[in-house]
Design a protein around this nucleic acid. Structure first.
Lengths: 215, 215
DNA sequence: GTCTATAAGTGGATAGAC
DNA sequence: GTCTATCCACTTATAGAC
């Protein structure tokens, strides 16, 4: 779980296995990677893997646990402050999305996002993590934001459920495009790509829902 | 390739293999299904499979070929008629999307859509089919539609590229939600689900871009 | 066109020496 | 904690009898 060297300046074998597994799983998918391949890449024999992880599934479990720990420790963007929401909805939508993306912008996290996108269709645990944390929870969050914006008469009174979907599904589309389709073929991180395109989408949405007097 | 019985009232073994493979691949993914499993389900020995298909890859190839043939024979929605486009853009957006979906609405095609969504990340042929036919080509089509609508002064003069994305991303999202996420857990076909939700999206977009006088 | 038999390889996982 | 050696289940695919 620890990617950095310890005090002796060495990376533990368990960490090496973790990191190599993240690399290989994200490239080929969990099933297409063998314990032998991981061991070879780490530089040990396959039987030695079992001194660190009970079995192959346990490696994937620890990767998902790492992912969830990072996501939780980053915290939701709810603490941005009500002042900005009340005074400048434009900035809130733009900044809120950026903050939501920033804390998942490391090479390891980007690879795990890819693993999630690959394994989602067959791994029920991964699927439910995505559904709850990357779909249902954010939709509720943005619905509450749009509800506030409407109550404060800062935007036109559309159905906040529809607004949340129109706003957030574009982010899911970007996720699909980047991690599943790997399109466009880019070396850039998801966050860097998504920020620009989300800005365009946010601007378009805002131009539709901002009250005339506020323009 | 032929799902219906022939004149003797019998389904050929090759067709059985095809259909069973579609069923199994769409449930478990190509790699997770063995030739043995297909043979068992068909009711023959695994060696007999090789009398009909050269190898396992050839089965998947024939499935993709079937998919492409159906897509091509259905034709693009460009022949809907310019009159409707000129006179009633609302109907065009709604009807155009429906027509685009209708010709892919069979149980077999739905299962192949699922296979495509599963194999896209690792099968370069399938990935490029999706990118070209389900992403780039439709985006170009809708961009040309919005360009016409703007030229005819039927909608506000937004950037047609942005409009195409803002309209079409929702369809890609629905694809992702239905075939990858399988959410919500539904027995309904993609088309039936997508039509209703696309209508909502189309209405929202139209409310943003329709000229005030036209409302 | 289907069968039996078998080849040749890869997979996850364990036992026990060091 | 790493190694060698090994097990056994399972994979795709082929040869040849019927």
């Amino acid at each position: 779980m620890n990617e950095t060297p310890n005090e002796e300046g060495k990376v533990s074998t368990k960490d090496k296995i973790f990191q190599v597994s993240v690399d290989l799983f994200s490239e080929k998918g969990f099933n297409a990677v063998s314990i032998r391949e991981i061991a070879r890449e780490v530089g040990i024999r396959e039987s030695s893997i079992y001194n660190h992880y009970k079995n192959k599934d346990a490696i994937l479990d620890s990767i998902i646990k790492y992912f969830m720990d990072v996501m939780k420790s980053s915290g939701p963007p709810e603490d941005i402050g009500d002042e900005m929401l009340a005074q400048n909805p434009q900035s809130f939508l733009k900044l809120g999305a950026s903050m939501y993306l920033d804390h998942i912008n490391t090479p390891t996290m980007n690879k795990i996002w890819r693993i999630i996108s690959i394994e989602m269709y067959q791994n029920e645990k991964i699927r439910s993590i995505f559904l709850e944390n990357m779909l249902e929870e954010p939709l509720k969050f943005w619905e509450s934001i749009f509800t506030q914006l409407i109550e404060n008469k800062l935007i036109k009174p559309f159905d906040p459920k529809i607004l949340a979907r129109e706003y957030f599904f574009f982010g899911v589309y970007l996720f699909f495009e980047h991690f599943v389709l790997r399109y466009p073929d880019t070396e850039k991180s998801f966050v860097d790509v998504a920020k620009d395109r989300l800005m365009e989408h946010t601007n378009f949405l805002l131009s539709s829902i901002t009250l005339e007097g506020e323009k």
